[in-house]
Structure formats: structure tokens, C-alpha cells
Simulated scan of single mutants.
Amino acid sequence: MAIYYMICPMSEITNKMILKFLEVGLVSSMVETIVDAEKGVCEKALGVLDRVFDTKQGREEAYKNALMVPLLVKKVIRVSDLATQFIVSILWKLFGNVKNDDVEGGELIVEALQVGAFQKLLVLLQVGCGEKTKEKVSELLKLLNVYKEKVGCFNSSMNFKHLKKPF
């Protein structure tokens, strides 16, 4: 919580503080914490990551961490509504640079598709979420949809041709 409150206000001092935390491995520590953490701790760690990824240097650290995307996708809907909001915000920040042909971000999207992000985000829309989260999920789905044909993330062996439809 202390780190979260230290980096929450938006100012030049805060950005310098975030850089110091990044130098000592904050992103890796938060990812390791999220893996086995209880609900409250997981929410706090995701809140810290959400704030850290407002900075370019924070997003670059996320690109370097191989567990980042699979862990976030796994935790969607599983922890709490607050955690899910943080996760959607984090994914939105990480994937947002892809529109500018960011190679690392594109690789993250492919990885997210491979671990089932598209399906989880669709479920999140069906289950329901806040208005801001719903907007971000919709944007993420549009972005992921562009990449899904390239990846082949859906099981194409399923054949629904002979499925009988009720009238």
C-alpha cells in the first residue's frame, strides 16, 4: 500500500519515484506477488502495476517480463471486480501502443491470444462490468480481433456445419 500511495499522485516527483522503483525490480516483484497472493494483496499489487504502466519505462519493463500477460489473463474474473478492472486497464495500456506498430506490443497481443485473452474478455462483457471497463474491453477486443486471424487462436477443428438449429 505504501508504494501505491507514493506513486499515485501525478507529478514530476512521482515519475522519478516510479523510475527508482523500476530500477530495483518492482515489476518482477509485483508479478511474483500476484501469482500466489490472496485477494487483497493481489488487488494492491495490480493497482501498483496499473499506475507504473502509465509510464513508458514501466511498459518497457512489462514487455521484458515473460509471465506478465499469461498471469494477467489467468487472473481476469478470478480474483475480484477491482482486480479485473486493474487487469483490463493494464492490458489496455500495454496493448495501446500497438496502433503505432510497436513490435513488442504486437508480440504481447499474440501471446495474449494464445493464452485465451479474447475468450476471457468476451466472457467479461457477458458477465458485466463497469462502464469504463466495458469501453476498454471493447477496444481491446477490436484490437485482438485484428490479430486473431494471424495467430489462429481459435480451434478451427470445431465444425458447426451440421449443427441443427431450432426454429
Rank of each mutant, 00 (worst) to 15 (best):
Glu43Trp: 09
Leu121Arg: 00
Leu122Met: 15
Gly47Asp: 03
Lys64Met: 07
Val103Gly: 01
Glu107Leu: 06
Leu122Gln: 15
Ala2Gln: 14
Phe118Trp: 08
Val31Met: 07
Val24Cys: 12
Asn100Ile: 07
Glu111Lys: 08
Phe160Leu: 13
His162Thr: 06
Ser29Phe: 02
Val69Leu: 13
Lys142Arg: 09
Ala45Trp: 02
Leu19Asn: 13
Phe95Thr: 04
Asn145Thr: 12
Val35Ile: 12
Lys93Trp: 11
Lys136Trp: 08
Tyr147His: 14
Gly128Leu: 14
Lys39Ile: 15
Leu26Lys: 01
Tyr5Arg: 12
Val76Arg: 02
Val52His: 06
Ser11Trp: 03
Met6Pro: 13
Leu91Ser: 05
Glu131Pro: 07
Phe86Lys: 05
Leu26Tyr: 00
Met10Val: 15
Ser157Cys: 07
Lys16Leu: 07
Gln114Glu: 08
Glu135Asn: 08
Ala37Trp: 09
Glu104Cys: 04
Pro70Tyr: 10
Val98Ser: 05
Gly152Thr: 03
Phe118Met: 15
Thr55Phe: 01
Val48Thr: 02
Met1Tyr: 08
Val98Met: 08
Ile90Asp: 01
Asp102Ser: 05
Glu60Gln: 03
Asp54Val: 14
Glu12Asn: 10
Glu43Met: 05
Tyr4Arg: 07
Tyr63His: 04
Phe95Glu: 05
Ile7Arg: 02
Asp102Thr: 02
Val69Ala: 13
Thr133Cys: 15
Glu131Lys: 07
Asn159Pro: 04
Val73Arg: 02
Val48Pro: 02
Val35His: 05
Cys129Ile: 01
His162Cys: 04
Met17Phe: 13
Val48Cys: 03
Lys161Asp: 05
Ile77Val: 10
Cys8Gly: 03
Pro70Thr: 06
Val151Tyr: 12
Glu149Leu: 09
Val41Gly: 11
Lys148Val: 07
Tyr63Ser: 03
Lys148Ala: 11
Leu46Cys: 12
Phe21Cys: 01
Asn97Phe: 03
Glu12Ala: 09
Gly128Asp: 08
Asn145Arg: 12
Gln119Asp: 11
Val73Gln: 06
Gly25Leu: 00
Glu61Ser: 01
Cys8Pro: 03
Met6Val: 12
Leu143Lys: 10
Ile109Cys: 06
Asn15Val: 05
Leu71Gly: 05
Asp54Asn: 11
Ser29Gly: 08
Lys132His: 05
Asp102Glu: 11
Cys8Arg: 13
Phe167Gln: 04
Gly40Tyr: 11
Phe86Val: 00
Lys132Met: 14
Phe154Arg: 14
Lys75Ser: 13
Glu139Leu: 09
Phe86Met: 02
Gly58Arg: 07
Ser138His: 03
Ser80Trp: 09
Val137Ala: 12
Gly106Lys: 06
Gly106Glu: 15
Val35Asn: 04
His162Phe: 05
Val31Lys: 00
Glu23Tyr: 00
Asn65Ile: 02
